[in-house]
C-alpha cells in the first residue's frame, strides 16, 4: 500500500490555499492531519493530483471562548481540545466527546476541520456538531459562507464543500449553565470507530422538566443526526430511570440504521436504545455545580 503519485504545496495564506485548490478543478485536496486522507490514498481509494497542506497557514488552530459560544479553528487538533481546561466549563460535552476519538497518537495529529470534511458516519465530531447546532465557516477563493452543521453533512463521506473551499472554523453555540449532558458510545475496542454512539444535552425548568432537548446519534446509518422522536418524548418530562428506559425503547424503533460486517441492523438499533437510556440516566444523575 504505497501512495499514488501526487504534487504537494504548502501555502502560507488561506487565499493562496483556496486559489491553488480551485485551480485544480476538484482534483486537488486540502490535507490537515492526514489521519483520514492518507489511509484513503494508501488504499488507492483517493488519488488527488495535488495535496494542499493547510498546516502552515497561521491562525487556524485556536480555541476561543466568546459570548456567542466556543469558536474552534479548523486546524485545531484533538489533543488541543482535550487539554483545554477552559472547555470543561465552557463546553463539557465537547471536552468529553473528543476523548472517545481514536487513539492518543491519532489525536495528536487529527484535526476538527479534517473530521468534519471527511464526514465519516461513525465519527464523533460530525454528530456532535449536528447535535449542538454548530455552525461551520467555509472560505472559498472568492467568498466565505457559514453553514449549519446539519446542512453541511450531506451523506456518507459527503459534505456541502465545493471544490476549492476550506473549512476555517466551527462555532458551538454558547453552553447554558446547569445544562445536563452525556456522551456514550460503544466500539469493539477503545479508540475504534463506534458501532453506535449518542451525544445529548437538555436544560431543566424550575420544575425539573426537560427543555431544549438535543439527542444526536452516530454510527447508525449514512449520516449522523438528531433523533426527533426521542427528543419529543423527553421534552417537558422529568428525566429518571423509567423515562430513560422508555426513551431508549422509542429510540430503538425510531432510529434508522444500516448493517455492515461488524454489526447487523437489529444490534445497532438495540445499541442506540441502550446508549440513549444510559446517557439519559447519566445526564440526570450528574451533580451540577450551583
Amino acid at each position: 500500500m504505497k501512495l499514488p503519485p501526487f504534487e504537494y504545496a504548502s501555502p502560507r495564506t488561506l487565499q493562496e490555499a483556496t486559489t491553488l485548490l480551485s485551480k485544480h478543478n476538484g482534483d486537488a485536496r486540502p490535507i490537515a492531519g492526514g489521519q483520514s486522507l492518507l489511509p484513503l490514498m494508501a488504499f488507492r481509494l483517493a488519488a488527488p493530483s495535488l495535496l494542499v497542506d493547510l498546516a502552515n497557514i497561521p491562525g487556524l488552530d485556536r480555541i476561543e471562548i466568546r459570548d456567542d459560544g466556543v469558536h474552534v479553528g479548523a486546524l485545531t487538533r484533538w489533543c488541543q481540545i482535550e487539554a483545554d481546561r477552559r472547555l470543561t466549563a465552557a463546553h463539557p460535552l465537547l471536552s468529553e466527546a473528543v476523548k472517545h476519538i481514536a487513539h492518543y497518537q491519532i489525536r495528536n495529529r487529527g484535526t476538527i476541520g479534517g473530521s468534519l470534511a471527511h464526514a465519516d458516519p461513525a465519527a464523533e465530531m460530525p454528530a456532535l456538531a449536528i447535535t449542538c447546532g454548530a455552525e461551520i465557516t467555509i472560505a472559498g477563493a472568492k467568498v466565505s459562507r457559514v453553514l449549519a452543521a446539519k446542512d453541511f453533512i450531506t451523506g456518507p463521506l459527503e459534505t456541502a464543500l465545493e471544490p476549492g473551499e476550506v473549512i476555517t472554523s466551527i462555532r458551538f453555540p454558547k453552553w447554558r449553565s446547569h445544562r445536563r449532558w452525556a456522551f456514550q458510545e460503544f466500539s469493539k475496542r477503545r479508540g475504534d470507530f463506534a458501532l453506535g454512539g449518542v451525544a445529548l444535552h437538555f436544560d431543566e425548568d424550575a420544575q425539573g422538566h426537560a427543555s431544549e432537548v438535543h439527542i444526536g446519534v452516530f454510527g447508525t446509518g449514512d449520516t449522523p443526526g438528531r433523533l426527533s422522536a426521542a427528543e419529543e418524548f423527553v421534552r417537558g418530562k422529568k428525566v429518571d430511570a423509567g423515562l430513560a428506559q422508555a426513551a431508549g425503547n422509542i429510540a430503538r424503533s425510531a432510529v434508522r440504521v444500516a448493517s455492515d460486517m461488524h454489526a447487523g441492523a437489529a444490534y445497532r438499533q438495540a445499541l442506540i436504545g441502550t446508549l440513549i437510556e444510559r446517557a439519559l440516566v447519566e445526564a440526570a444523575s450528574r451533580a451540577i455545580e450551583e
Binding site: F43, R189, R190, G191, D192, M261, H262
Partner: peptide, 27 residues
C-alpha cells in the same frame, strides 16, 4: 475479536487492520 469475513461471492471483506480486529495493549 478476530474474524476473516468473506461474503457469499468469495470476496474477503476484512482487508485492513481497521476491520480485522486484534487485541490492543489495553484490551
Amino acid at each position: 475479536m478476530e474474524h476473516l469475513i468473506y461474503n457469499e461471492d468469495g470476496q474477503l471483506l476484512t482487508g485492513s487492520l481497521a476491520d480485522y480486529v486484534v487485541p490492543l495493549a489495553d484490551d
